[in-house]
Design a protein around this nucleic acid. Sequence first.
DNA 1: CCACCGCATGACATCGCTGTCGGACTGAGC
DNA 2: GCTCAGTCCGACAGCGATGTCATGCGGTGG
Lengths: 340, 340
Amino acid sequence: MATIHDVALRAGVSPKTVSRVMNDHESVSAKTRERVRLAMQALDYHPNAVARGLRAQAAPAVGILMGDPSGGYQTRIHHALMVACLQNGRHLSAELVEGDLAGWQDRIRAFVTEGGIREMVLLPPECDFAPLKALLREHDVRCVLISPTSPDSLSPSIVMDDRAAAREVVEHLFSLGHERIGHIAGHPDHAASTLRRNGFNEAYAAAGKPRPDPALIVPGDFSFKGGLAGAQALLDMDDPPTAIFAANDDMAAATCMEAQRRGLKLPDDLSVVGFDDAPIAAAIWPSLTTIRQPFDQMTQRAITALNAWSANAALGKAAATILTQHSLVIRESTGPVRAG
Amino acid sequence: MATIHDVALRAGVSPKTVSRVMNDHESVSAKTRERVRLAMQALDYHPNAVARGLRAQAAPAVGILMGDPSGGYQTRIHHALMVACLQNGRHLSAELVEGDLAGWQDRIRAFVTEGGIREMVLLPPECDFAPLKALLREHDVRCVLISPTSPDSLSPSIVMDDRAAAREVVEHLFSLGHERIGHIAGHPDHAASTLRRNGFNEAYAAAGKPRPDPALIVPGDFSFKGGLAGAQALLDMDDPPTAIFAANDDMAAATCMEAQRRGLKLPDDLSVVGFDDAPIAAAIWPSLTTIRQPFDQMTQRAITALNAWSANAALGKAAATILTQHSLVIRESTGPVRAG
DNA sequence: CCACCGCATGACATCGCTGTCGGACTGAGC
DNA sequence: GCTCAGTCCGACAGCGATGTCATGCGGTGG
C-alpha cells in the first residue's frame, strides 16, 4: 500500500507538498502539482482515511443511530443517506440504539469518544430526545436532525409538516364522503404521533365540522401488532367508522388485514389510509393510500447541511430549518363511502 | 478528552503500561494495574479507536456491503449483525453497492484501502460474486460469507440448505393435497434462486411423482413487481395451479395481492408459500407460510468466525462451513386443496 | 547594492496508541 | 559478593497524514 511518503519520493518533493496537492491547498506551482498527480496515479495511491482521522481528531464518517428496523422508515432513510454520502465522498457509520436512553448513553459516548464521530444525523424518534441531544452537544458533535417535531435552535433540521399532511389525509376522506373516520395514533414516544393526531382533529375544524368523536381515536405504537389491536377496537364499535387513518403504513396494513379477516371488502366497506409510503404500502392488497416523504431530498439536504457546517463553523449558531414537501399518494385502499 | 498520556501521568506510570493494562498484556503487577484502572476511571478515559486503527493498520470496524434494501433480507441481516457486533465490542461499517460490479470496484477498493477495512461480511448476492471475492482477497481482506451458494474454500461460510427448504415447502403442499404447484423463481443473479428451483423439482422426484409441468415454473426477480407478473402468468393459465411457491416473501405477497384482485379466496382457492419470513410475511392477509432463517444465529456465528480468525491467523486456510437450521413456518396462506 | 516582500516548498513535530528493545530491580544460587 | 534469570516497566520510534514555522528564491523599490 503506497503512502504519501512513497508518492513524495517518486515525485521528488516532500510529503507535505503531496498533502497540499491532495487538499487543493495554498500555492503549489502547476508543474509540481502535475508531477505529484502523476506519481499518485502511477502508484495507485489512496490516502489513508484512518491516519487522516487521527490527525484531524475525527473519524472520517458521519454517525447515525439506528433502532428497530421494523416499519422500514429508518431503513429507507439509512439507504438514502448512504447514497447521499456516496455522492459527497463521505461515509456513514451506524450505531445501534435499542431500549431506553439510559442504556445507550455509555454506548453513544463510546461511539463519539472512541469512534471519533464528530458529525451525526439523528432520525425520529431519537431526534426529539433532549437528553440525547444534550449529550451529543456536550461532546461537540454536530447534529443534523431529520424530521424532528420541534426544530432545534442549535442543529439544522430537515422537517416535514406532519400536521398538514394529516389534514390532507382527512380532507381526502371528506371528499369521498366519509364523516366517521377512525384514527390509530402512533407511538407515544414519537412526537410525530401527536402532530398527526392534531392534524386529524384540525381537519374537522377547518372544514367547519363538529369535533370528531373522541372514541374514534385509539392508541397505537407504529407496529403491525399495535395496528391490529387498534383496528379491532375501532371495528368492534357499535357504530364503526367508514374510514380509518392509521399513523403509519404498518398499522394501516394491519387494519386492512383485520378488516379482511372480518370479511369486509376494501375499499367499499372501509377506506384505509397510512402514512410514510413504506414499501408495504404498495405491497398489499388493496394498495395503500398514504403520505410520501421525499427521503432522497431530505437526506441529500442533511449531508449538504453538514458540508456547509464544516465549511463554515459559524453556521451551527444559526441553525436552519429546511421544510420538505410531502405528497398524498392515492391508491386502492380509499374509495367513496358506501351509500346508506 | 483524556488520552493515554493523561492516564499515565495520573497513575504515575508510562503510557505503555497503561496500554498494557488495557490490552491485558504481559505482566503488570496487580498494584500497578489497579492504580491504572483507577486513573482511567477517574478521567473517564476511552481509548481512541482511530489512533488504534492507525497503529494497527486497520480500521476498527467490520465492513459490510449493502445493496438494494427492498425485500428486507439485507436489512434484517444488517440489524442482526449490528447486534452481534455490539455484543462482541466491534463496529460495522457499511458501503453501498448498487448496479454492476464494474461500478463498485473502485469504491470497494477505496473502502478497503482508504477506509482500512480488513474484515468483511458478505451477503447474497455479493457473496457469490467471484470477481468481488478475488478483489477482496487481493487486498487481504478477511471475508465471512453469509449464505453463499457454494461455500468458498478460502472464507468461512454460514450457509443454509435452500434446496432442502424448498423441498419441505413442496412436501407441505403435497400433504395438503396439492399436485399442481406453480413456482415463481428468484432473481437469476442470486444463486439461491437455482437451489430453490431445484429443490422444488426434487420434491416431485422424492415423492415418486412425475416431473412437474415446466410451464408451472415462471421467472421472477425477488421484487414485488416481478412477483405480480409471475402470479399473473400462472393464474392466466388454462389450468392454473392450486398452490404457488414463490422464491421469496415479496413475490408471495404479490401473488396474494394478484389473486385477491381476481376475486380468489385464500387459501381456499389458492395456497401461497413464500421464503425468508420477512416482516411482510406476517403483515399481510392471509399471513404467509414461509421458510424462516435464523438470522441472529447466522450473524452471531459470522462474528465469532471473524474473532476466531483474528485470534488465529491460520484459520483462514481451513475455512469452515457452518450450516444453520431453517424452519417451515405455517401460517394462513396455505390450506387443503379444494375438492373438485 | 541592500532591505524587504511574497511565493513555493521543506523540516519537524504531532495526533493517540503500541511494538521493540533494553534497563532496573528482585531474589536465588554459588 | 557476584552472576543470572525472571519480572516489571519505560524510552523510543513509528503508523500516515498535516499544521506550524522556517527557508530559499526571485523580484521590487529605494
